[in-house]
């Protein structure tokens, strides 16, 4: 493999790695893990104690507050952020037929879209190549869609999770889910979704109703999958996402 002067590079890198002194696991680790396990594997996590758990609890508490707040209360404080998404509590929109996500017209290729934005674009292997791919004019959002006989239209939007807020969702109900073991949000009911200006505040455009939606994060990117699928299917699609190289 050596093509240059530095023959022993791979050996030296391995030695560098071996020399790293990471403290051995303390005897308390397994105990601490066991104390936090729920009764059955695969069940949701039970409340725990270390610092990092508090963050998740805080999010959980906000969600509970959202669900519990009477609709007459001012909505000003009733929001939280999740990787560039701002979720506000709102009343359920008037019942309509299940909204279908807008399709994306064929235009850019995956590689072209990936080259145009500053984050890593992913595509779910479960769905294969999308029928359409587009990059928003401000290059903040990459969108793609698939139209199939079995599942109708599925749409995936993705953007840098560290943006202040890109997408506003006003929803009556939000659920906590997990993708690859990390937190995700699941919107079961039709809800309003809109794009926000880069400063995250006032201007709302492209507001529309959205159906089942899963929002998760992978490698610093927020992904938003929308379509007429169950949560388990949405998670399976989410977990099959791989970057476009």
């Amino acid at each position: 493999m050596a093509e240059h002067g530095y023959d022993d590079l791979e050996r030296d890198l391995a030695a560098l790695g071996r020399a790293v002194d990471v403290p051995a696991p303390g005897p308390g680790l397994a105990t601490a893990v066991l104390e936090r396990l729920s009764d059955a594997p695969g069940a949701r996590v039970s409340p725990g104690w270390p610092r990092r758990r508090l963050v998740a609890l805080a999010v959980g508490a906000v969600l509970l507050a959202l669900l519990a707040t009477p609709p007459v209360r001012a909505a000003v404080a009733d929001w939280f952020g999740f990787g560039g998404v701002r979720v506000e509590r709102g009343d359920a929109p008037a019942p309509t037929a299940d909204p279908t996500p807008p399709t994306v017209a064929p235009g850019a290729s995956l590689q072209e879209a990936a080259a145009m934005v500053a984050f890593t674009v992913a595509v779910p292997e479960e769905l294969g190549d999308p029928d359409g791919v587009e990059v928003s004019p401000d290059r903040r959002i990459v969108s793609m869609s698939w139209t199939t006989d079995e599942e109708g239209v599925l749409r995936l939007d993705q953007f840098d999770a560290s943006l202040d807020f890109s997408v506003l969702k006003t929803a009556p109900d939000v659920f906590y889910a997990a993708v690859n073991g990390t937190d995700a949000l699941w919107f079961e009911e039709p809800h309003e979704v809109a794009l926000l200006e880069p400063d995250g505040t006032t201007v709302i455009h492209s507001a529309r109703l959205a159906g089942h939606t899963l929002i998760w994060q992978e490698g610093g990117v927020t992904l938003r999958l929308e379509g007429d699928v169950e949560l388990s299917r949405a998670v399976a699609i989410a977990e099959s996402a791989v970057p476009v190289d």
Binding site: V22, P23, P25, G26, L29, A32, V33, R36, L37, S38, P41, G42, A43, R44, V45, G48, P50, R51, R52, R53, A178, G181, T182, V235, E239
Partner: peptide
């Protein structure tokens, strides 16, 4: 400095999502 917390959290989450 959060290495142990991260690992503890990962083991708890792995257990919680064993169904998948």
């Amino acid at each position: 400095g959060d290495t142990e917390d991260v690992v503890q959290e990962a083991f708890v989450k792995a257990y919680a999502s064993l169904d998948r």
